[in-house]
Simulated assay, not measured.
Amino acid sequence: MEEEVTNPPGSTSEQLPDGILALLGPRTYLSTACETALLLTKAIARNPDRDDLPGVRDRMHARCRLNHKFTGALCSCPCHPQAD
């Protein structure tokens, strides 16, 4: 069964106003999903016998919300194509 997403990846519905964002300063954002996927990549190297880990890692990357829920900063994970 497909799970319902109330705030889909890329959604800007909960971002803070620009005036407040300006006070926060620039930050690099790595989503929790992509951070976990990068940790799973290390676990794959340490556990080559675990055939299930690559699939879990790929699902985590796919779950990335792409931008920070409140600031709108784009996820800096190398799995995402970088816009030029």
Rank of each mutant, 00 (worst) to 15 (best):
E3H: 10
V5D: 07
V5R: 12
N7K: 13
N7D: 15
S11T: 02
T12K: 11
S13E: 15
D18H: 12
G19F: 11
G19Y: 10
I20P: 06
I20V: 14
L21D: 13
A22E: 13
A22W: 02
L23M: 13
P26A: 12
T28K: 15
Y29V: 05
S31V: 03
S31K: 03
A33Q: 09
A33W: 04
T36I: 04
L38C: 08
L40K: 08
K42E: 13
K42V: 09
A43Q: 13
I44P: 01
A45T: 07
R46K: 14
N47G: 03
D49H: 08
D49Y: 04
D51R: 06
D51L: 07
D51Y: 03
L53P: 00
L53V: 00
L53K: 00
P54R: 00
V56M: 02
R57H: 00
R59E: 04
R59A: 06
H61P: 01
H61Q: 00
R63Q: 07
R63H: 04
C64S: 02
C64I: 00
R65M: 05
R65T: 07
L66S: 03
K69S: 11
K69E: 13
F70M: 09
A73K: 09
C75F: 02
C75G: 05
C77Q: 06
P78C: 05
P78L: 06
P78K: 09
C79I: 15
H80K: 08
Q82Y: 12
